[in-house]
């Protein structure tokens, strides 16, 4: 089994090698949460990874679903025109994921049950400073997700990632 930090490392190296051209769209669906309180932080973490892969800040997000129902979706549009659709749901003892990254000249695909969320680390891996920044970023994104879920509307973000 591998976790999302390993996935991130491999995806990042692949993108850095210009294997698919400029990354443009991330479609990532994961049945990965062990409990409903994990759903929003994990969705925010997926957003942090997508942001890293696309090298762009989201300019607008729109969230649907509910933690009570065990499923959340997040649509993101980025400043440079890229976009992403992320979704997280309960693993129900059978974690699985499907990842598609579309690039200008190619695509990356990963599907299966051998990559799970993680065991206690957030985006950025084991490095303490990066992990602290990731936790902070994740908290901000959870707040934006909550705002979109409550308003049932997209939420615009400033270039720095904050709500304007």
């Amino acid at each position: 089994m591998y976790d999302w930090t390993v996935l991130n490392q491999t995806v990042s190296e692949t993108l850095a090698g210009d294997a698919v051209g400029a990354p443009l769209f991330v479609r990532w669906t994961a049945a990965a949460a062990l409990s409903t309180p994990e759903l929003k932080p994990l969705l925010a973490e997926m957003s942090a990874y997508a942001e890293s892969w696309l090298s762009a800040r989201p300019r607008r997000i729109y969230a649907t679903g509910s933690s009570d129902a065990g499923h959340l979706s997040l649509a993101l549009e980025y400043a440079n025109g890229q976009s992403a659709l992320l979704a997280i749901s309960l693993a129900h003892d059978h974690p699985s994921m499907n990842l598609v990254i579309l690039g200008a000249r190619g695509a990356i695909y990963q599907t299966g049950s051998q990559v799970t969320a993680r065991a206690g680390s957030l985006a950025g891996g084991a490095d303490e400073k990066r992990q602290h920044a990731a936790v902070s970023s994740t908290s901000q994104m959870v707040a934006v997700i909550d705002k979109s879920l409550f308003s049932k509307q997209p939420v615009s973000l400033s270039p720095s990632g904050d709500q304007p």
Partner: peptide, 21 residues
């Protein structure tokens, strides 16, 4: 060149008791 076949045609179902790809 972006897919080994005709394209990415897929459905991910999420239910209250499990999911299926």
């Amino acid at each position: 060149a972006s897919h080994p076949a005709g394209g990415s045609n897929q459905i991910h179902l999420i239910g209250a008791k499990g999911s299926l790809f």
